[in-house]
Design a binder for these strands. Structure first.
Length: 111
DNA sequence: AAGATGACGAGGG
DNA sequence: TCCCTCGCCATCT
């Protein structure tokens, strides 16, 4: 099991994203105490691909682009899921991002 | 053990 | 505004 504390934190926060909202890799990285590890957040989510308990489709990059869509089972799965939650996606990008953006809570160090 | 990778993000030209 | 480069850091090879 490669999951260490870092992965668990990423998964925990990702599960907290409300239905119909999205957040970014960087926001999650910052919330878990490693603001420079946005790339690793993506890496962790990649390792969670196929896990229906983790709404990874609600995590996009800072511009609202669906950079992770290629890692889902279907080539349009990510966009379909987001649109199904009431968010419009145009040209691989979430529209009106700031309206749907969800700011994750900062995790205590001993969580 | 050492170098390469990447679902990012910020800055420079 | 678009494009490229660089820094980042847990993992992977």
């Amino acid at each position: 099991m490669p999951q260490n504390d870092f992965y668990e934190r990423v998964y925990y926060l990702t599960r907290q994203i409300p239905y119909g909202r999205v957040t970014s890799y960087g926001a999650i990285a910052k919330a878990i105490g490693s603001p420079k590890s946005a790339r690793v957040v993506g890496y962790a989510l990649n390792a969670s691909a196929g896990n229906i308990d983790i709404p990874a489709h609600r995590v996009v990059n800072r511009n609202g682009m669906l950079t992770g869509k290629a890692h889902f089972l279907g080539s349009q799965a990510m966009q379909a899921q987001i649109e199904a939650e009431g968010i419009s996606v145009k040209n691989n990008q979430v529209q009106n991002l700031q309206k749907y953006f969800w700011q994750p809570p900062v995790l205590s160090l001993d969580n």
